[in-house]
Design a protein around this nucleic acid. Sequence first.
DNA 1: CACCTAAGGTAGTAATCAGTCACTATCTAA
DNA 2: TTAGATAGTGACTGATTACTACCTTAGGTG
Lengths: 205, 205
Amino acid sequence: MPEDTPRRRLDADARREEIVRVTLDLAAKQGVDDVTTQDMAQAMGVTQGAVFRHFPSKDAIWLAVMHWVRDRLMAVLGRAAEQGRDPLDALARMFAAHIDFIAAHPAIPRVLTSEHLHIRNRALRELVTEIMLGYEARVAGLLEAAKADGLARADLDAHAAATLYIGMIQGLVLQASLLRGHRTLKAEAARTFPVFLQAVRPPNP
Amino acid sequence: MPEDTPRRRLDADARREEIVRVTLDLAAKQGVDDVTTQDMAQAMGVTQGAVFRHFPSKDAIWLAVMHWVRDRLMAVLGRAAEQGRDPLDALARMFAAHIDFIAAHPAIPRVLTSEHLHIRNRALRELVTEIMLGYEARVAGLLEAAKADGLARADLDAHAAATLYIGMIQGLVLQASLLRGHRTLKAEAARTFPVFLQAVRPPNP
DNA sequence: CACCTAAGGTAGTAATCAGTCACTATCTAA
DNA sequence: TTAGATAGTGACTGATTACTACCTTAGGTG
């Protein structure tokens, strides 16, 4: 058989995975809310109707994308955190891993925060809420552990600090996307995280 | 003539203002990216075609909305800041004023961060960038002034801290919108700002 | 009152989109 | 080899959308 012939037919599982992949790619290129099923099909080299053999609706595609994001993100964050020597080191590694993950998949924060997707699709909004609350709880847990170890100020409001942490990432993403080119996500992130740490660290060295 | 007949005809200036107003209202109710010109017309009690007598395109409407947002927001922030007794007090008042403003006009942060609006409409994106950079410069300026007064740590990276400040607001908005009802914007804001302040304050009281 | 300007109404258009369906091509297993 | 299963095609639909052209009428001015 000829080896260079591109395989068109994929089994349903592989095709579903590819749809999720190209959807994220297209979202990064042209914006989350401007990805059409026609775009997806074209990016895969099939016709538009074929997309609906594998998903019953476009909402279902976004839900699958969100599951993919949750699974990957949580795995990346977990792996980074468990290499930390202490809770604050774990937090720093988690932050760096998250920034790297976003740099590799720029559409992810947009998918998580796109109100257009949340509004009618309740399942999607609940999944986002689960991701956010889980993330916040993880950060707050690390901060509580840091308090117990004397690495964080005793009077720190861990919940509020976790909110600040998540907002920091959002702010960095927005800046990087508006000032594309002028400021890089990684450089700004490296400057901003130490400021956040100052809010956490105890007053007496 | 019957008195209960609502006045329909408005002069062009008043109609343009009303279009901006209802557009922001509708964006808060049904999402920025789901406001149609038909919705706007219906909210004003006119037909859809009438909208295009006052704006040449929908993009032009969003641009007018963004100008409205910039003018109002800057006025609110400026008024709040100039009442501060010192730079950090000014920052705290500015933050509180911003949170109040968002609570009164929930669509505003969504309009500022909607990528769907930024993507093709370059003028809009540039206006958002101007607002963001201006805001960041204002915050950084207050922080530099605080450093000069000994109210902030001498080694503070004012630019990075301003990024953190803006991210804090974004994070609070996202939380409030996802957990609508469970957490209120003002309460969470009141808890989170003191944590941010700890990142700024000098180590020795 | 008569006239004119500008705001609004009516009734479209072309484009785009998600989703459908009957049919075909390709793969696999007996 | 053949029969069933399934991935993909192509043509379509109905709904929605921003935007337009032409007409009507309100309302102020001389």
